[in-house]
Design a protein around this nucleic acid. Structure first.
Ligand SMILES: [Zn+2]
Ligand SMILES: [Zn+2]
Length: 812
DNA sequence: CTCAACGTCACA
DNA sequence: TGTGACGTTGAG
């Protein structure tokens, strides 16, 4: 009860000292009252007991899993469900203050005791992040201060926080922008989580879990993408000045189905709906502007950050996450085992305990200060055990935002990832929630938290995590901006324009609500981030990745691919690296697909399977297995889909739709490598074969030149060469792909049902190289209908957005 | 008062 | 070092 929601409570005012200035962040008037200690805190504001941030992924989970050790032994252990354990709280509280000890004051470390602002170590990120004070003890390493990435100064924003709602002691109040209606729960996670994140450009949540998202005043100057290592990027205080919480507490959870286990708010479940289709004209990618140029100082996505400490007791993932297959990096042992939450054994680890159980969240041994985005050691990013190295490991790719890395011992337990970043869930792993699709995306923001640092409360020094998704967004944004700028001068915010400028095959739409909000936001903010969110950025990285990884299964770790240093890789895109944060990528199916989420779904009655990969946030890739379709074509068809959902893309087959799916979604997640149950796994194809198949699938002449990129086929090539003049019809449940080339129409019987939660400003873009994709049916969930003031408008809007001809809207 | 669960501590 | 237990904090 009490701890269940975000609430104020942290310490304020918070003094922040920067080179340039010292300022105090104050919350409310009442907070100002009372005696203040050296830090400007009064007793009330001290962090006596930390509270869940309410914004991280786990905090988004409203229900106990009832399966974890803590849940099972709740009476005795009195601990919150492991899946709900706030990331931020996982960090060890700094020993200062035991409740019974003198609450404070006396315990204030000398350093801070007299704190002149200048004496304070680097300002706590918390300032924005919610960390109210500096580490009181000082005995604990303060990553911020020690971390090179933490600027010693706060870039900005001083007192803006006034008026902000305390967020469980964190500055970040629920982000209004992000706030979703019940109908539109925000993603977790980051994903909003998942992606609860990043709907708003303002929201800038950092990747590290240390600090909770903070709300940023609108007037605050927009934060531009910062160098990865930059304070801002790192979630420096300054940055956060701007940041808003990416995850507002999301109260709503649609629970249509009874289920056991925690429920994760869907990011956009309500939007559900449907599908869209787009077409293929992929944006120019060839050059991944910006991304490639990114230097170490560039933004890094959460994924790019090293794991942060994970708490041994808590899983990084939510039970709902879909489990991935063992990745190449992680041997099976890592994923299998009793740790599987679905497994009864899961409750007990070898020690007889659940993967996550200990009541103590901060146990020694945990790397609370772990390598995080802020890790001083820049190099650290690339070094370290593969399993712990985000850049190398796939493990954790799928973690939802807010989930920190599990310790090794937990990894086993995490075998199954309850969530899928895409929202595509696999029934197998954990009880899935209806409507949730298991997606956590975002979350992006969903994401988060590699770094549970011990920052935050000056006393105990913990800060809440930040949604990682933001980082992703940043990256994306960056890429997008550059890209778009190259492409046209059109206002990037102007989605319609962009659409126009795009090739015909593209489809995009933004929900009316989204537009509204978007417009509002645009007024307030012109930051690139907004642009990112508001428009469907073409994520260049996607193509690159797609072509490279998806098509050819480029293994990031493979020698070939090693050509691209990991750094390079992460520069490219957030997806390029395996995600280290919880939100994403872990469990990725393979080293190959470390960048994506992999999901296999049954797409139509034709028994067509589709492999959907997503960066978990903004892009999705759908690959069809033609073999299961017409039977005539054994080559895999790949559909590139991209959706910019403000990081909250939820793409999944709409289970709710009465589409002609003869078979349910693939019950089990499949490995990227073996998406089709080993029926000619993609990876088993040689590159040439792949290419061949691909061409065949799309009726691409052999003569068609293909370029290789990094050993893979450049998706750009496809994009440019394939994406035109072809049409695809999407009819009920089936997409017809008409290849213009040979007037021979190739009908792809697959039905592609995409359930995309557009959130409030989400946009979906589905691109099928060489084909035009149109929307066949639009189905709204009841929830959406219920919450939509004007469904017709929405429908029209969607229809118009695609400009497709044959549309059939169906209400659900 | 109840409930949730944070944080501490003792123990293995 | 990792855990289980549980006193205690704190929100309804
Ligand atoms: Zn549980
Ligand atoms: Zn939290």
């Amino acid at each position: 009860m009490s701890d269940s929601g975000p609430s104020g409570g942290m310490s304020f005012p918070q003094k922040v000292h920067t080179e340039d200035e010292d300022f105090v962040i104050e919350l409310d008037d009442h907070h100002l009252d009372g005696a203040h200690d050296a830090y400007g805190m009064d007793d009330r504001s001290r962090c006596k007991r930390r509270k869940r941030c309410g914004q991280c992924g786990p905090c988004q989970v409203k229900e106990n899993c009832m399966k974890c050790h803590f849940c099972v032994r709740k009476d005795v252990l009195k601990q919150t469900c492991i899946y709900r354990k706030c990331i931020y709280l996982r960090s060890k509280p700094k020993p200062y203050s035991r409740p019974h000890q003198s609450p404070q004051g006396g315990n204030v470390s000398p350093q801070r005791a007299h704190g002149h602002p200048s004496q304070v170590k680097s300002p706590p990120l918390g300032s924005h992040s919610g960390m109210a004070f500096h580490d009181a003890g000082g005995h604990l390493p303060d990553a911020r201060s020690e971390n090179p990435f933490f600027p010693s100064q706060l870039p900005q924003q001083p007192s803006m926080v006034h008026g902000a709602h305390p967020n469980n002691g964190y500055l970040s109040p629920p982000n209004p922008v992000l706030e979703r209606t019940a109908a539109l729960p925000n993603a977790a996670g980051n994903n909003s989580l998942n992606m609860q994140m990043n709907m708003s450009p303002h929201q800038h949540v950092q990747a590290n879990a240390t600090s909770p998202p903070v709300q940023k005043p609108d007037h605050t100057s927009p934060v531009m993408p910062q160098p990865v290592n930059s304070p801002l990027a790192a979630g420096m205080p300054g940055l956060h000045a701007t940041p808003m919480s990416s995850c507002s507490s999301v109260p709503h959870m649609s629970a249509s189905l009874s289920h056991v286990g925690p429920t994760i708010p869907l990011v956009m479940q309500q939007m559900s709906n449907n599908s869209l289709s787009g077409l293929p004209t992929l944006p120019t990618m060839g050059n991944i502007p910006g991304l490639g140029d990114r230097s170490l100082n560039d933004y890094r996505s959460v994924d790019q950050f090293p794991l942060s400490g994970h708490h041994p007791h808590f899983p990084s993932v939510h039970p709902h996450m879909t489990q991935r297959e063992p990745s190449g990096l992680f041997s099976d042992h890592a994923r299998i085992s009793h740790m599987n939450y679905n497994h009864t054994a899961n409750h007990l680890d070898t020690l007889g305990r659940g993967p996550n159980d200990s009541s103590c969240m901060y146990h020694p041994g945990l790397s609370y200060s772990m390598p995080g985005p802020f890790q001083p050691s820049g190099p650290s990013f690339f070094t370290g055990p593969a399993d712990m190295n985000p850049f190398r490991s796939n493990f954790l790719n799928s973690f939802p935002p807010g989930y920190s890395y599990p310790p090794d011992r937990y990894r086993e337990g995490f075998g199954t990832l309850p969530f899928s970043r895409l929202g595509i869930t696999s029934p197998t792993s954990f009880p899935q929630y209806p409507g949730q699709g298991g997606g956590y995306r975002v979350g992006n923001a969903l994401s988060q938290q590699y770094y549970n640092s011990q920052h935050g409360c000056p006393k105990n020094g913990s800060r809440p995590p930040v949604s990682p998704s933001i980082d992703d967004v940043k990256v994306i944004q960056e890429g997008y901006n550059k890209n778009s700028s190259q492409k046209s001068t059109a206002n990037e915010n102007d989605v319609p324009k962009q659409c126009k400028n795009r090739k015909n095959s593209e489809f995009e739409f933004i929900s009316p609500k989204g537009r509204e909000k978007k417009m509002k936001k645009e007024k307030l903010d012109n930051s690139p981030r907004d642009q990112l969110f508001s428009s469907m950025a073409h994520l260049q990285p996607w193509n690159d990745l797609f072509a490279h990884h998806a098509m050819f299964g480029g293994d990031p770790l493979s020698p070939n691919n090693l050509a691209m240093s990991q750094i390079e890789r992460w520069r490219l895109s957030p997806w390029y690296n395996s995600r280290s944060d919880d939100v994403r990528s872990r469990a990725s199916t393979s080293t190959l697909s470390s960048d994506f989420e992999c999901e296999v779904i049954g797409i139509d009655d034709q028994q067509v399977n589709a492999l959907i990969r997503s960066d978990g946030c903004n892009s999705i890739e759908i690959e069809f297995d033609n073999r299961s379709i017409s039977s005539t074509d054994s080559s895999p068809r790949k559909m590139l889909c991209r959706s910019s959902l403000s990081c909250e893309g939820l793409i999944s087959p709409d289970k709710n739709l009465q589409l002609p799916f003869n078979r349910p979604l693939s019950p089990e997640p499949r490995s990227f490598f073996h998406p089709w149950n080993n029926r000619s796994p993609i990876t088993m194809m040689s590159e040439q074969e792949m290419m061949k198949s691909f061409k065949k699938a799309f009726n691409i002449p052999d003569s068609f030149s293909t370029s290789k990129k990094n050993g893979g086929i450049s998706s750009d090539t496809f994009k440019y060469n394939l994406g035109h003049n072809q049409t695809t019809d999407m009819r009920k449940g089936s997409a017809l792909i008409e290849n213009e080339k040979p007037k021979t129409k190739t009908f792809v019987k697959e039905s592609v049902c995409i359930k995309q939660d557009l959130g409030e400003e989400g946009s979906v873009q589905l691109e099928l190289p060489g084909n035009k994709v149109t929307i066949e049916n639009i189905v709204f969930t009841e929830e959406l209908l219920k919450n939509s003031s004007d469904i017709e408008e929405l429908r029209k809007f969607i229809s118009n957005s695609q400009g497709s001809t044959d549309q059939n809207h169906v209400n659900d």
